[in-house]
Amino acid sequence: MTLAPPRTATAASITDGVKTYGRGDSAVHALDGVSVDFERGAFTAIMGPSGSGKSTLLHTLAGLDALSSGSVRIGNTDLGSLNDRQLTMLRRKSVGFIFQSFNLIPTLTAEENIKLPLTIAGDSADEEWFQTIVGTVGLDDRLTHRPSELSGGQQQRVAAARALVSRPDIIFADEPSGNLDSTSGAELLGFMRRAVREFDQTIVMVTHDPVAAGYADRVVFLADGSVVDEMHEPTPERVLDRMKNLGG
């Protein structure tokens, strides 16, 4: 392991997070007083019915969107005090993303896409780390391909590799397997879990799928913009049960 700055036990946290869209009668409270801590080196899944505020939570945690009130921390940094440029730098160094689709730049090869956060920052890649990631996601022979030449599952694995390449404090994934068939989904999720277990990464993933949630160490349940429950060492069956109770 390379020398890293002292790390807090909590990779990210949100306290009393409120996000309101609109005003007056038509106001929607997408987040309604959410407080969650995300432990370093853990794989957390966020679940909840449609419209419960999962994506909003993820976006505010990642600094892509600002809270109406409350605070978000990533590592030691309070996001509320950052301007656009500082937020950009934070995303560059400390945050990784995996979106549901359109994760890659079509003009760049798989390798270039993976290294993108580093290239943007003007850093050179740690080749050993790069090889480790690529080996783990099983993309060794696809590195020179463009996104259009990759399957959906491969594209998502490239995106996952990209999220890992800069060894961020935390990786956010919004339904990363949502567009994949079960085999590709399982491959991707398996890889994400290995990243947490073997490389000590921290991942927060939004999902609808109890099977996907089963890969996580912990599940946080959201309803109407607040945390209603959580579960450790989940299994798909238990998650499904829980979901039924929530009425999702």
Binding site: R85, R91, R92, N103, P106, P117, A121
Partner: peptide, 16 residues
């Protein structure tokens, strides 16, 4: 648009 959003998300500054 999406591409530019993605670039910004992974850390590209407005200036870049």
């Amino acid at each position: 648009t999406r591409e530019i959003g993605l670039l910004r998300a992974v850390g590209m500054t407005r200036r870049q």
